[in-house]
């Protein structure tokens, strides 16, 4: 089927599309690659032509235990945030998909509003709350704020997937005697699996990269983006590039490992 469609496609447009995809990826990765190159540059400020090759920026950050701490903290926060906000996002999306009730508008507003709040002011407002209930300046303070910010993304992705589902599918499962939980487990969640995985990845990514709110609520528990923000605002040296590249290298290896795990699992699943 897809063979036929491909055959009817002219070769030129296929090549054009391939080239286009490459250009988009080049655009996305250009700043990352440049950052990597300049992380080995001896000059403090990036200009062309390059200065000499140096590893001193990496030596600086590797000697700095704060960077390691911040990295571990960022990963922890991102992972926990991803799980909680995807759970919340999925539940909210399902509620919207399945039920009609009084106050639904308000409920959805509450669920989707957070990304519209400017982050700088959101940071101060979150700090105002958390410090009053004695929960500020902790790692979990960042998680709390990030879940607020991220669950709308998860909700949007899950809702998108649910809207592609035939609502009668679930009803059919009920008619066959499945409880709501069983129907959820055997019909809805498997159907939403790609969306759930995407939501997990995306919320982790958003949390991992957030600095404005984290600066306020984290107290002295810095995450990587907060650290970068502070260097960028008050110092500016290739430590920024070194941290960025280092974090990039680790995250891409994690992704590759995760990919391989998922693939082997899929293969096994297919075989058994």
């Amino acid at each position: 089927m897809s063979d036929r469609s491909r055959a009817s496609d002219s070769a030129i447009s296929t090549w054009f599309l391939r080239l286009y995809v490459l250009v988009v990826f080049a655009f996305v990765f250009a700043p990352i690659i440049a950052s990597f190159v300049f992380s080995f540059n001896s000059d403090r400020f990036p200009t062309i032509p390059l200065g000499s090759f140096t590893t001193k920026w990496y030596e600086t950050i590797f000697a700095d235990t704060d960077v390691w701490d911040a990295f571990a903290r960022s990963l922890t926060v991102a992972a926990i945030t991803a799980v909680i906000s995807t759970t919340i996002g999925f539940c909210t999306a399902y509620t919207d998909f399945r039920y009609r009730f009084r106050g639904k508008g308000f409920y959805l507003g509450l669920a989707l509003l957070p990304p519209t709040v400017p982050l700088v002011i959101m940071g101060l407002a979150m700090l105002a709350l958390l410090s009053r209930i004695n929960m500020s300046g902790q790692v979990y303070s960042i998680v709390i704020s990030h879940v607020v910010l991220c669950s709308p993304f998860a909700m949007a992705i899950c809702r998108l997937r649910l809207s592609q589902m035939d609502p009668s599918l679930e009803a059919a499962a009920w008619n066959l005697g499945a409880s709501q939980w069983q129907a959820m487990k055997t019909v809805i969640i498997p159907f939403c699996k790609p969306a759930i995985i995407a939501a997990l990845c995306l919320t982790a990514a958003v949390s991992f990269d957030e600095f404005a709110v984290a600066w306020f609520v984290s107290g002295l528990n810095k995450t990587i983006p907060v650290m970068i923000l502070e260097i960028l605002q008050g110092n500016v040296d290739p430590q920024i590039n070194a941290i960025g590249s280092f974090v990039f290298a680790i995250s891409i290896s994690l992704v590759v490992v995760a990919q391989i795990l998922v693939m082997t699992r899929d293969d096994k699943g297919r075989k058994s």
């Binding site: 700090l127 004695n134 500020s136 605002q233 008050g234």
Partner: peptide, 22 residues
């Protein structure tokens, strides 16, 4: 353990919302 700010107003806002002794 440093907390770096950019601007005195930011600093005051941060202190005013943090527990004393932070």
């Amino acid at each position: 353990k440093p907390k770096y700010y950019a601007g005195g107003d930011n600093m005051l806002a941060l202190i005013s919302q943090s527990p004393p002794g932070t």
